[in-house]
């Protein structure tokens, strides 16, 4: 049976799309058949994170009734299947959100996990993405505004009877102004199942359109995402240890710039 998991945040800019993209790739690397769907039809950027921009047929076309969903599925890293939303504002005018449900029913065929990257906020498109799911993964940063917004999303998800798997705390830094894991769990009344540290490498990899779990699988961020993926499907997680760098490799990295 296909698991339909929506990744939602409430507030924009918390790294939800990057988490979704990398989680999709991580799940696929464990041998799962994964489809990642960008439901953020107004502010789509999943395709940018995965380096798949400029695709001719996108979810926009499917929701506008111009193309079948099969034509909007593209293969990404580790064999993850991706349905980009498309970034054309022109296409947005013709979109019929009601077709999303029908689209999803086609997607779940032959798929183990359908990951939906939900739009931020609580507009109709965001709630459609929540309502379409069986389970939801909440992503937040440990900052007050993010927690405030994700709390609203959590309440709506509860009302829609969507099973909340847990909270992913993204871009964690040890800063006293941020909320602790315990405080987040207390406020949201949902367990924190992953803590992903802040790392500039994530933005760099996104800029190059390459998921960090592929670009730098040894990094703490990649290990945290791989662990989250393993936990979601009940597989054993083995951290990827850094290589023992040789003198030449070290010299080259020294010449190319630090870390």
């Amino acid at each position: 049976m296909t698991r339909v998991i929506t990744v939602a945040s409430g507030k924009g800019g918390v790294g939800k799309t990057i988490v979704t993209a990398n989680l999709g790739v991580a799940l696929a690397s464990y041998g799962e058949s994964v489809v990642v769907l960008d439901a953020d039809i107004a502010m789509a950027n999943l395709e940018l994170v995965l380096g798949m921009e400029g695709k001719s047929v996108t979810l926009h076309d499917v929701l506008a009734g111009k193309a079948p969903i099969e034509e909007a599925i593209y293969e990404g890293p580790e064999g993850v299947k991706v349905v980009p939303a498309g970034i054309s504002l022109e296409g947005l005018r013709n979109v019929k959100l009601e077709r999303l449900e029908e689209t999803l029913s086609h997607l779940v065929e032959n798929t183990d996990i359908l990951l939906i990257d939900a739009p931020a906020g609580l507009e109709k498109d965001a709630i459609s993405a929540l309502a379409a799911a069986d389970e939801v993964l909440l992503v937040t940063t440990p900052e007050v505004p993010s927690i405030s917004d994700v709390l609203k999303t959590k309440i709506i998800a509860d009302k829609l009877d969507v099973n909340i798997i847990g909270v992913v705390v993204n871009r964690e830094q040890h800063d006293k102004t941020f909320l602790t894991k315990e405080e987040i769990e207390t406020i949201l009344e949902v367990p924190v199942i992953a803590v992903i540290p802040e790392d500039v490498e994530v933005s760099r990899s996104a800029a190059f359109g390459e998921p960090i779990v592929v670009k730098n699988p040894k990094s703490p961020v990649s290990n945290a995402i791989m662990k989250l993926a393993a936990d979601l499907i009940g597989k054993e997680f083995h951290p990827i240890e850094p290589d023992k760098k040789g003198v030449i490799a070290k010299l080259i990295s020294g010449l190319m710039g630090r870390r």
Binding site: L122, E123, K124, I127, S128, A131, V144, I147, S148, L151, K152, I155, I156, K159, L160, L179, E183, I187
Partner: peptide
């Protein structure tokens, strides 16, 4: 401590009705 509050039932219903 963080100045947070739960959204009330009425607000939740409004959001869901709009959806």
């Amino acid at each position: 401590k963080y100045g947070l509050k739960d959204i009330d039932e009425e607000e939740v219903e409004k959001v869901l009705e709009a959806y």
